[in-house]
């Protein structure tokens, strides 16, 4: 009896592992097929515009508000720590570096997965559940070209733009709190930041990160939607999974990228 329990556990583990590998393989094949379908966008760029609006423009508000508050918290928190060492003039360095290198890309990616990624998954999942995708195939319209490719590319384009906005607004938020409320010297805030933040090492690495995160988050969102079980329950599960796994993969990838980027200096 106990041995059969054990065997059941092992079988379950094996099934889980194989299922995971199968999903991974399917997602890679899906990505390749969608990327191959992207050539249609050169012929019909109008398809992207609508998706850029849904994925990018509608996400701006949450990104800007979150960036402002994250920057303000960084300013407040950084000031309270730095003032103990009498070096509150370095506030700009702290706010700038932590936003540009880490918080900007990561928090933007998490919010992006929550705001845009979940919407993408739900929309595509619902299209699948209501058999709109099969309907398109019936009419000889390739859903990869008409539905999936524009969404994927719109996500890739939007994410770096949103991350740059986040960092900018965050730096301004830190400025408002640090200089406006707490009395850090405005010149010191900007000049120390400019002395320490390097365009190539910091800003460019942050951009690379946001591009990678945008790729990951959008890929997962579109794939989960396309791969969802075509029922209302399946769509809800796919949406949850999309946000959860995108967030986890982004955080793990962030660690890898940070280790790579710090290592190369």
């Amino acid at each position: 009896m106990r041995i059969s329990n054990l065997i059941n556990v092992i079988t379950g583990l094996g099934r889980f592992g194989l299922g995971f590998l199968q999903r991974l393989g399917r997602s890679v094949l899906f990505l390749l097929r969608t990327l191959a379908a992207c050539s249609v966008l050169f012929a019909r760029p109008g398809l992207i515009v609508r998706q850029l609006y849904a994925v990018g423009v509608l996400t701006v508000l949450i990104i800007v508000v979150a960036g402002l508050f994250v920057g303000m918290v960084l300013g407040l928190q950084g000031y309270n720590i730095l003032v103990r060492f009498n070096s509150e003039a370095s506030l700009g360095v702290m706010v700038g570096l932590s936003l540009v290198r880490e918080l900007g890309p990561v928090v933007t990616a998490l919010l992006f997965a929550g705001r845009a990624g979940s919407a993408l998954t739900a929309e595509i999942g619902l299209m699948k559940a209501t058999e709109q995708l099969s309907g398109m195939e019936m009419m000889a319209v390739d859903p990869y070209k008409r539905v999936l490719a524009p969404r994927l590319i719109a996500g890739f384009i939007s994410m770096p733009i949103l991350a740059a906005m986040f960092s900018c607004v965050g730096v301004l938020g830190g400025y408002f709190v640090g200089v406006g409320l707490l009395g850090v010297d405005a010149g010191a805030y900007w000049s120390q930041m400019q002395n320490s933040v390097d365009l190539w090492d910091d800003v460019l690495n942050g951009m690379i990160k946001s591009i990678v995160f945008g790729f990951i988050a959008t890929w997962i969102a579109v794939f989960e939607g396309y791969d969802s079980v075509p029922t209302s329950e399946g769509v809800s599960m796919a949406t949850t999974r999309s946000v959860v796994s995108a967030s986890l993969v982004v955080l793990a990838a962030n660690f890898l990228l940070t280790a790579l980027m710090l290592g190369e200096e």
Binding site: G96, V100, I161, A164, M165, S167, C168, V171, W190, M193, Q194, N195, S196, V197, D198, L199, D202, V203, M207
Partner: peptide, 11 residues
């Protein structure tokens, strides 16, 4: 935003 990061924030 990228322009501001380059000109105002970085060196």
């Amino acid at each position: 935003a990228v322009f501001m990061l380059a000109m105002k924030v970085s060196n």
